[in-house]
Nucleic acid binder design. Structure first.
Length: 272
DNA sequence: AAGTGGACCTGCTAGC
DNA sequence: TGCTAGCAGGTCCACT
């Protein structure tokens, strides 16, 4: 599910309401990807700070000594409600506060909630180390992309997903950005010219920005913390559209597999 | 160092 | 109707 637009949409939908609230209780469901890393009761009585985002992670300061690093994995979503329903079978983390309850619902449990003393302390630092630039960072340019991709033989699609050059584009938006830039997703990353890197950097930023404006993509279960669905899926030009005509040239969109993930592209508009 | 494949887990859908 | 295979928005880790 959650690529940068979904994570940022989620953040914006509850950050203001939870900031300054005091933790009343913590409820854990089934294990997530990693253990919480602290005794839940140590969070009780602490106040919540300003929620920030780095890549697809959220950082929520709790008390003066640290905070929680959250990841939504493939199927996670966060809900923030004054009076939450009884936790269902997939509600694996509740942070009950004086302002409401923040609840992680995650059927596949690839998501995580991890205590860390600080963003620059383990385990947060370990998880965030090696992340590439934020796509809206002015330093993320065609020149940066070109320099970071030099010498790399992996396909550009996989290089984008790896997140060590630029963060935030997952399977949907990597496909969409490559379509917009007119680049075949199988092109070896290091063989993309500087001008095409410029186009790709612009496309990544534009696609992620458009998705953010539309509240992200809801394929099946994504909701923001108000329960609202995203609307980008109506604007996807290639993702999930195998066999359907390319919106630019009407050639049927193709599906292929790269690194065990589906890739969608137009064989006419996207070139090596 | 960079690239590859497996692992984690559940639910849904298409096809027989 | 019921079973099975295949697929799904992520990313860490071990191995070559």
């Amino acid at each position: 599910m959650p690529e940068l637009p979904e994570v940022e949409t989620t953040r914006r939908s509850f950050a203001d309401r939870i900031q300054g609230a005091r933790v009343l209780a913590v409820r854990l469901g089934k294990p997530l990807r990693w253990p919480l890393g602290c005794a839940p009761e140590t969070l009780v009585g602490q106040s919540v700070g300003a929620v920030a985002r780095r890549g697809k992670y959220l950082w929520m300061p709790v008390g003066a000594r640290g905070g929680l690093l959250l990841h939504l994995g493939m199927s996670g979503s966060l809900a923030f409600e004054a009076t939450p329903a009884e936790p269902g079978p997939h509600a694996h983390f509740d942070l009950v506060t004086t302002s409401g309850t923040l609840r992680l619902v995650d059927p596949r449990r690839f998501g995580a909630v991890v205590w860390s003393a600080a963003l620059d302390a383990d385990p947060a630092a370990r998880l965030l180390a090696g992340l590439g630039l934020e796509p809206f960072d002015p330093a993320f340019t065609g020149a940066h992309l070109h320099a970071k991709l030099r010498g790399r033989r992996v396909a550009i699609k996989q290089a984008l997903l790896a997140g060590d050059v630029v963060v935030g584009a997952g399977n949907i938006y990597a496909c969409e950005a490559l379509f917009e830039a007119g680049i075949d997703p199988r092109t070896p990353a290091g063989r993309i010219s500087r001008p095409r890197c410029e186009r790709l950097a612009v496309a990544v930023r534009r696609i992620l920005g458009q998705a953010l404006e539309l509240g992200g993509t809801t394929l099946r279960d994504f909701r923001d913390a108000h329960g609202m669905e995203g609307r980008f899926q109506r604007h996807a030009k290639v993702y999930g559209r195998a066999g359907q005509p390319c919106p630019s040239c009407a050639t049927p969109v193709r599906r292929t597999v790269q690194g065990q993930r589906s890739t969608f592209y137009c064989p006419h508009c996207q070139r090596r």
